[in-house]
Design a protein around this nucleic acid. Sequence first.
DNA 1: CAAACACAGATTGTTAACAATCTGATGTCG
DNA 2: CGACATCAGATTGTTAACAATCTGTGTTTG
Lengths: 222, 222
Amino acid sequence: MPTDVDDVYTRVYDAVLEQRLLPGTKLPEERLAEIFSVNRARIRQVLARLQHERIVDLVPNRGAFVARPTAEESDDVLEARRVIEPAVLRRLVERATTTDLDHLDEHVAAERRSHHDGLEAEAIRLSGEFHNLLADLAGNTALAHTMRELSALTCLVILVHHAPTASACRPDDHESILRAVRDRDADAAVAAVLTHLDLVGASLTFTETGSDADLDAVFASR
Amino acid sequence: MPTDVDDVYTRVYDAVLEQRLLPGTKLPEERLAEIFSVNRARIRQVLARLQHERIVDLVPNRGAFVARPTAEESDDVLEARRVIEPAVLRRLVERATTTDLDHLDEHVAAERRSHHDGLEAEAIRLSGEFHNLLADLAGNTALAHTMRELSALTCLVILVHHAPTASACRPDDHESILRAVRDRDADAAVAAVLTHLDLVGASLTFTETGSDADLDAVFASR
DNA sequence: CAAACACAGATTGTTAACAATCTGATGTCG
DNA sequence: CGACATCAGATTGTTAACAATCTGTGTTTG
């Protein structure tokens, strides 16, 4: 039985990606241990991993909190994506099989459905997962690993600093990226993703906010 | 408490960078706990972080081992560096202060001393740290974070796959990179680091399958 | 009335003991 | 002789209890 440490990690990661865990939310060990039916020791390992990725802040004797990226960190994350994602797309344009393209099509279709059905949380998660999927299919484990980290951080960045009107990561953008990949037009794909990232960056307005959430609701059993 | 989790993590990380912890080395929890005078719980958190970075393999009920990157992972790590380091250097060319350049000078000088004095382990660590320092001074926390991860993995890659004659990461290479940065010649800096990485890649001797690689390495050495 | 203090409850940090699992060594059987 | 079974020691995984620390509340005091 594969250690559910990975399981718990993924549950928390997904919750961040779905924006059900908001920046600044306290993550009490005992509470998480109950929710996931594991002991505190495991929770601590998960939190150690998340802290190392800067997805949570670990304050000594105070506990774990979902990270609230500073303005500088936010810029850094978006610039890092501007570095990595073009490379991901160039690789993908070269290597994507028709099966890969079908997977991507399917994913974008799922995004559209979630949007249409008003399943906002799922739509947000799928939107982040789209970029992770691009990196996975590009076939470089190191880049894919970094991409997953940056995706989660991007979600937090958007939550902390986004202007209320701006909506980042619409399925339209993803479709234009996917179209360029399908056309094997690397430059167009890179341009599309850079535009996408510029849009996110432009929607950011660096102010201070934070909030809490009902953990039981966030991790409602499935 | 002198030894924080971060402390222990850094100690292990440095040991990997110094190539005193070789790929495949077992890392028993109890033993590490004694060495660093902390309890096993902390060691487990450190190992969880290291596993998440793929610097150690964590096998259930068997324990932790220093990772032995496969040929594919090795390629991925080097390609990821080819993606990230050019961006780091372009940033650095734009932003490096004279103080930064002095730090880099000092670092390369230290590398030369270690080389000259035959302090091989320290020379290797400093060589890796040079690239980390470049990323730190480039001023992007996200890229610097990824760079530290890739540096350690690169050390493991070299140890697992390098041809015995080839010596990667000589101070000469670092000096030519540094010279280009000082000249504010971004293209030259990028070219220098790419050459550097190509050299490392060229020195690697991949065998087809993981288990075969083991046997070949064993029998090639006598 | 405000500030400082003190205490109670809750949360994190630490430790040790116990259970489960693996390694490898020995012994038995075909 | 070799393959398999078994057992002891060691290592990892789990649990619970205890200690240290923080937060918030209520009281005291200037």
